[in-house]
Design a protein around this nucleic acid. Structure first.
Lengths: 348, 348
DNA sequence: TTGAAAGCGCTAACAG
DNA sequence: CTGTTAGCGCTTTCAA
């Protein structure tokens, strides 16, 4: 059987071609100082002539870097992840790093396995989006001093690098906007409650109600999971209440789409009969009808920043954990207006 | 400097713990037949006790597989790619393969470089979505007998494995539907004309016109690139024609969204004044307003199938190239109706 | 400034 | 059924 690597040109070939030892070729490859310019030139020429490409496996095995960053995400269906990855890629590419992608499909147990594989030399660092059970492996990572950054999750302790958005603030702002529009019965469909961001948004919602003297009604809160059906089901339940809400705040845009679907099915209008507020501001939010009023989360920027933090840490392992919270902001579109049937467009 | 791999447990440690040679451990690892069940058991126990995890780099370097599949895509912003990757992941995960992701950001030159790196042992196989200049490296891949499959591109020769959709048929069906609705002036915004799928859709469009005795008018065709602004700009141009089209067929959904934007900006209604037809049927298509009538492309299935083909080829290198075209079908929603202002909803 | 030699952790003949 | 022995292609001391 022909070996897959047969016929590949190695540094030995380059060395022979350039008339130097292969150690020297390695030096050139790694941009070491101590190589005579003339020799370097000769090696470089030989490399291009032979079409040499470095073997990352060997390089990494021998003690170098793999130049690979592992990325753990739960799903790729929505543009939520797409935007984050865009930011990650934008920072990774110029730094010559590659991305190894693992999709956990929301199966908690997979995360630990993936992390173990990745840290076994496959990757130099790790980026984890919305981990589901970080407790199971984060401590291992910390002890082994393996570089990683969490995205959209604060982790289990203060000792963990993480990039998050101002979720509490976003939940507060969203709810307050609805209150100022005149709503008093505001429903909320939460995200997965095992996620800090979902809990924070809920807390922000409660705080805004409290600050405006509106008693918290547990009936108005439906537990969701960030997926569209949850938005749909939660809204159906909310609308069936004896005293249904006049506005619904979903913990993310995708669930808000589900809410819209449910509202229409009940032959109610948006926003005339029920206002809808989302969270994330994914591209689709501006394209649904009516365009969704939502809280913008700087997803691409979160990806970029997390990557920069990781790269920084890779360069200088002495750098300690850093925790950054990026601001969220209200994007007013047309899915919210003051309560009361048949009113005109929301003025503000 | 502490080596990253220091303290890692290797097969040597496992061998010592189990009281066997490390070759035996390797055998157990690779599920070779010739190991006494009792010994195997002892090794397995030692592995779990020590928390052993295989080092893929070493395994791969020594002649095994890397268990990694490389994936080349141009962008991650839309769910077009997200859906394809979902299909890929669904097939890859059970087969214990990982995915190494490369985003080319539409820069043609990057593709060759990535392919060179990937084939240098980093990956066992390659999946390429919508390549931009496959000519530059496909021949190299073929000669070196490196396994790969193209997705949504027919490649440069018949000798190349590829999964595509029935683009010509889709273009024909879309146009014919519009014609049967009564449209005679049908605009088309093409995809990148360096892509076979874009050319096929255009050809399907032309063929449908011809078959129904409608002369082809080059003025009605705007060259696009599959991105939203192209749909917007193309539509503006089309609408400014002395005799503007009553229907616009965009070569993908994202450009159709751009078309909708432009139509609204001209204070025209969809579909009363202008009908809009897309291509792809990404999830957003059913959520825009009005819901987009489009041609469905089985993206997730394309990802799955391509992956299955690749895995098959990995198992048996003797398998020759296979080319599969998956059917496309018309999804009727509400963005198209017979021409003539103020008509009622499209009946069909 | 350069070279020789020793592995990194594993797979794969080849013996026994 | 199990062990011995070579490497895979590279980085890294240690010498020269």
């Amino acid at each position: 059987m022909t070996k897959k690597t047969s016929g590949n040109v190695t540094i030995v070939d380059v060395a022979r071609e350039a008339g130097v030892s292969y150690t020297t070729v390695s030096r050139v490859l790694n941009n070491k100082e101590n190589v005579k310019p003339e020799t370097r030139e000769r090696v470089l020429t030989a490399m291009t002539r032979l079409g040499y490409v470095v073997d990352q496996r060997a390089r990494s095995l021998a003690g170098g870097h793999s130049q690979v960053i592992g990325l753990l995400v739960h799903d790729l269906g929505t543009s939520y992840i797409g935007l984050i990855i865009r930011g990650i890629e934008a920072e990774l590419a110029p730094a010559q790093y590659d991305l190894l992608l693992y999709t956990t499909h929301r199966r908690k147990t997979k995360e630990s396995v993936y992390v173990a594989t990745l840290t076994r030399g496959l990757a130099d660092g790790l980026l984890i989006v919305l981990p589901r059970n970080p407790g199971a492996y984060l401590e291992t990572l910390r002890v082994s001093n393996f570089p990683y950054v969490l995205i959209d999750h604060r982790g289990v302790s203060e000792e963990i690098s993480a990039v998050t958005a101002a979720n509490w603030q976003g939940g507060y702002t969203a709810t307050e906007y609805l209150i100022k529009l005149g709503h008093r019965r505001i429903g909320h469909i939460t995200g997965s409650m095992d996620q800090g961001c979902a809990r924070d948004r809920l807390e922000g919602y409660k705080a805004a109600l409290a600050d405006h003297g509106i008693p918290f009604d547990p009936e108005l809160v439906q537990e969701g999971d960030f997926f569209q059906p949850a938005g749909y089901n939660g809204t159906r339940a909310l609308l069936n209440l004896p005293d249904p809400p006049t506005a619904i705040f979903a913990a993310n845009d995708v669930m808000a789409f589900g809410a819209m679907e449910a509202i229409r099915e009940c032959n109610l209008r948006i926003p005339e009969d029920v206002s809808v507020m989302g969270f994330d501001d994914i591209p689709e939010a501006s394209r649904v009808h009516p365009p969704l009023t939502t809280i913008q989360q700087p997803l691409e920027e979160m990806g970029r920043l997390a990557t920069r933090m990781l790269l920084e840490r890779l360069r200088d392992p002495a750098i300690g954990p850093r925790r950054v919270e990026l601001p969220t902001r209200l994007i007013v579109r047309q899915s919210c207006q003051p309560p009361g049937r048949g009113n005109a467009q929301a003025g503000g």
